[in-house]
Design a protein around this nucleic acid. Structure first.
Lengths: 228, 228, 228, 228
DNA sequence: CATGAATGAGGTTTCATTCAT
DNA sequence: AATGAATGAAACCTCATTCAT
């Protein structure tokens, strides 16, 4: 939850699913639906731990169904990825939109970065999805694309306020967030929290800030980084 | 090369190999030596791209020799890792020692971080070796261990000078360097250069620096991160 | 079948499987069962010819299935060995127990030796299993261990009757049986039948029998001989 | 040495090399000759332990020369086998001829069997050579062939004296000797001595000896048995 | 519709023999 | 002539995906 600025009403965030479905047609049979849910739930855990390339075998085992069932329900890996992460990505967008409600621009940006890393750090799959625009299908991609303007707004605000390095771009934040999110280990799953303030201080505009060199990361870079 | 502080003579740094060899006995025959070099060169490329777990098959193919030849020369993967990286790690130590010659503590630290990331970036193998103390054999481990005091000195100096956040520890630098080193893509192999100043600014002591939370990374964390 | 001693009814021998199964749980699917049988049948031939270390690849080829299938069904070589030989070893025990029903002690021993060699001859795999107590898993080992008392009884009876050399021990019989079993060739698979009476005559107590020298073979000897 | 029968002069055994060499032409250079000897000596040990298929690599290592040297001197495995075993086989022939000097036919046969097994038991290579007529080249084969009449004489004499089962043939003795020779383990290298009297007693003609069934072993059988 | 069995390519490693040095 | 390096076929085993039941 965003730290509410005092006596300020927070913009209501629209959490409703934007109906991007393209004719999945009729509903599943009751048992099929149950299995579908079991699979999704299992995959959430498995993908969170092992990433998007985790074996369907493991998912099936965790769900208590046969592999075949997983493949029938999700013939392409991307189908499962979609089912798992469309909502999560939506939630990330919502997060950025929520952050817009924080009055202080720097706090807004910082809060968002923290939240978004917190989400990704505990979920390797989510981190890969956010980084790799090629993952999942149309629906997921669309959700993902909505992050850009939302984060762009946070960034623009901070830039206007002169609190962030002026040449930081949206994908720079994505890169930094994605690197921070990797800083999670068995021994210290929240290791990233130690480095977040360093990243934030580094992003902050200072009298002596040198201009950033080179161009910002591009989608293709992000994709490749996410696939590592 | 270190940026020389003005009008100051720089201490001569000893770059000579400290003779860690343990009885490799006599030199290889000419053809074997040639193949060895082919293999090492091929492995450099392959490991740089695919990491330490790249297939020996691929190395052999790239070197234009049979698999058996690779196994004859390097019966254990660690033998090949040693051959590839012992010098590189030595060079990293030398780098840290070179940096000691830079008068200005902050510059020394920054220069070292830059150099060390430059080495690791684009060489996934080296990055894995530096992160994962279990890789390679004794000789490599020894070389790697020498980094700690060398970097420790740089850090201590910066801390005494009050220019670095006082609670940053050596392994924090290793973590940050290792993350930066990952920021290298086909499209922009030097992407990391854009984020280095951000990291450095974030490491710098400021009047308003908040203390870092949690404990610094431990060896085990570093290892796990490197294996990702 | 044991040669019945005249006008004497023979004790009914219990040939039923003594239920050693440890929760194999539910039966295999029809196709899996079919493949399992194909594999076992193929392995019978292959192991009979090449011994227990025959390649899984060859078994798979002979069975007309992929290697993976063999590994799925029998992840450890010992699993396959068990499946192939547990019943065979059981049958050998039953053989010894059957022999107990033969009234004449010498005939009982001879009949058993003949039957047991007949089983082993031409089946290198079985011979190795019987000789090498380390092969196969628990279940097989247990079955194998039951041979000792059963054969011991036959031997004791013959000794009490004074028809066998008094210093022959159980493992001596195992050694002799195992050597005889090797006497099977493509040209004459039953070559051993020629040497069996020689061995038996040699085992028989005679007025002039010299005592045997040295100690009897030990398990370790038998194991090593079987591995040859 | 044969136990000399009293007051009987022993036939002088011709130990001289029968010059079967076919133009090996000129003598080796001094160093080559030295290496040849080193190799043969090493191979004696190695083949004795591991049999005729032992790796040339191992022989080379034991000899302290390169593998290439072994292959140069003995391009075919059979060449080395010849060099190693021609004399040994000669010696076996001599043994049989020596045995002829023993007056008592049964003792002669028994003594020969004991000696010949003793030779083979300690030398797996020799055992394989004696069994497998295809091993080695012409010269060795010729030496080997000379065993037949020599042993044949011992056997004929015993048969005439009525002390051996009348239907035992020469190759039966070879089979029995070869099986006995296998009864040698690390724990008890002379295990075969325990079973030799059993075999001998079994070969002995008794009032109640049943005729042997089937035909005697043929060369082909012996060969296959030796290759096991 | 659910199942989990089957597949087979791909990586690892060894070893008998050949051949460049 | 001696060397030991190089070879490559072959066995081992795994795993993502397809398909028969």
């Amino acid at each position: 939850m965003p730290p509410r600025s005092t006596k300020q009403s927070v913009v209501e965030v629209d959490q409703s699913e934007p109906e991007l479905d393209l004719g999945d047609s009729r509903p599943l049979r009751a048992d099929a639906e149950r299995n579908r849910r079991l699979i999704v739930e299992a995959a959430e855990t498995v993908f969170a731990e092992r990433g998007l390339m985790a074996g369907f075998d493991e998912v099936a085992r965790a769900a208590g169904v046969g592999v075949g069932t997983v493949y029938r329900r999700f013939p392409q890996r991307d189908d499962l990825i979609d089912a798992l992460f469309a909502d999560r990505v939506q939630a990330m967008v919502a997060l950025a939109e929520s952050a817009a409600a924080i009055e202080e621009p720097w706090q807004a940006l910082g809060w968002f970065l923290e939240q978004s890393v917190a989400e990704q750090a505990g979920d390797r799959g989510l981190a890969e999805v956010l980084g790799d625009g090629m993952r999942g299908s149309r629906r997921l991609a669309q959700a993902r694309e909505r992050m850009l303007p939302a984060v762009g707004d946070l960034l623009a605000r901070a830039r206007r306020a002169g609190v962030v390095r002026p040449d930081v771009e949206i994908l720079d934040l994505a890169v930094i967030g994605s690197m921070l999110a990797r800083l999670s280990t068995d021994a210290d799953p929240e290791l990233w929290r130690r480095y977040l303030p360093i990243a934030l201080d580094g992003l902050r505009q200072r009298p002596d800030s040198a201009p950033l060199v080179g161009g910002a990361a591009r989608e293709a870079d992000l994709t490749q980084l996410a696939r590592r």
